[in-house]
Design a protein around this nucleic acid. Structure first.
Lengths: 118, 118
DNA sequence: ATTAGTAGTATACAAAAGGTTAGCGGTAAC
DNA sequence: GTTACCGCTAACCTTTTGTATACTACTAAT
């Protein structure tokens, strides 16, 4: 569990850079959500769009390209008719496990807190 | 450590909402960085601006207002001349400990990975 | 008297992110 | 033949985010 500990100046600026590095690739409104959706199993384009509520095709398309470029997602084209395209998360995306767990646990507690405040 | 485990459909959509809830309040380019900066200890406006590289006064001002509204930061005005304003993180901001730790650890490993790839 | 530091706000503008709509070429069902 | 699904993409528009500059009002140092 987290203790309310002070950080030293060095630890603080080290954290600032490492968190900056992390946010650079997985920051933004959609990236983590797409990764979570794909953790359930590989999905096709429209399946992802249905799973991630509110994302438009245009934005999903560009997010998937970035995620592929950064090695989080693999794009597999099955040359059938009609063409089926499958998106799969990579082993590297699995290293985000702790981040996703802590973030989702915090989100749950936060929602509880908001509910109790009303 | 994180295992490459599959999520069930229920777990997946629960995660999608809780991560959505979390990103709603701490998402964006600056919020987490400001919180990290203040974990070192209370700071004044200009001190925060110097600690968080690249943030402008206008953006810092609006981020601090939002953080105060959401209960992450307390604004303390010392009525001296000149006026000194101190920003302090709250106990609630400390519940983000695990999130910040996992994110900064991942960021460090990510940077290492990028360095080794070149 | 000028310069710098205190904590911001006002204004104007630029860039980035995201949303909306329409459409392509194909298949397959009604 | 019309509709609908597949996997997108181009064009256009709005919203969000950020940047730059100037300014307030006061203090302290040079």
């Amino acid at each position: 569990m987290s203790k309310a500990q002070r950080l030293t100046q060095g630890e603080c600026s080290a954290r600032l850079t490492s968190i900056g590095d992390a946010l650079y690739v997985i920051g933004g409104k959609w990236k983590l959500r797409v990764i979570v959706a794909l953790r359930e199993g590989s999905k096709r384009f429209n399946e992802i769009q249905r799973a991630v509520d509110g994302i438009s095709a245009r934005v999903l398309s560009s997010e998937l390209k970035e995620l592929e470029l950064n090695g989080f997602v693999t794009r597999i084209v099955h040359a059938q008719t009609p063409v089926v395209v499958e998106y799969q998360i990579t082993a590297y995306a699995d290293t985000l496990g702790d981040v996703l767990t802590s973030l989702s646990e915090w989100g749950t507690r936060h929602r509880d807190k908001l509910r109790n405040e009303r």
